[in-house]
Amino acid sequence: MTATTGQSATAAARASDVWKVYGSGEAQVIALRGVSAEFERGRFTAIMGPSGSGKSTLMHCLAGLDSVTRGTVMIGDTTVTGLGDAGLTKLRRDKVGFIFQQFNLLPTLTAKENILLPLSIAGRKPDPAWYDVVIDTVGLRDRLGHRPAQLSGGQQQRVACARALVARPEVIFADEPTGNLDSRAGAEVLNFLRNSVRQHGQTIVMVTHDPVAAAYADRVVFLADGQIVSELIEPTADTVLDTMKKLDTPAEVTG
């Protein structure tokens, strides 16, 4: 099945017939089987699926962290497929932001330094107005001089969000951003992500297995066995959960 919501001109990221095969012969594992998907600009998309469905692999391929076996990946108007290390590094600098589940921050740097790190690495100055907006949105103004060890898990993840946002990338990839947080801290982070999409037009692609987290997104794409099997627009936790239950019995869906 192919998800074709929106027009290609406005897609922030796009996968066309992407295959990912690990190993060879008997040990061969096919992680992605011809996935095609577009992720619209200015929207919050969640990728869901059971363990081993290929959702993380899809995100890694979209972000240029992993190479694809066949097919093409594009971010904005840049073709990711076939880029060398230098090209990928430039892509990450200019077009992509990351939020990981853990090990998100450098322990030697303060919150502020962590937030500004991608810009300093690229040798760019932050836009002061936008920087203020981001800091106020994440609500960390009084914590900027603290080091990660002095921050709570939720605060650390908000710093990571701010870091991803401050460079205004084409798309932010979030990999289970609430996986290590309690529900309250998780809700804070998710609210913050949704606001950055609604108020500032940021594009976010988030991998999660938590229906509550997925409900914050504008759209949910479901993966199973390396293929896109379903999608929901304007999901709620309940509709997501229902769809997930159906995925447990794949025959119904594919049929």
Partner: peptide, 8 residues
């Protein structure tokens, strides 16, 4: 992580 956020 550093490489992911753009360190060459």
């Amino acid at each position: 992580l550093l490489r992911a956020i753009g360190l060459r």
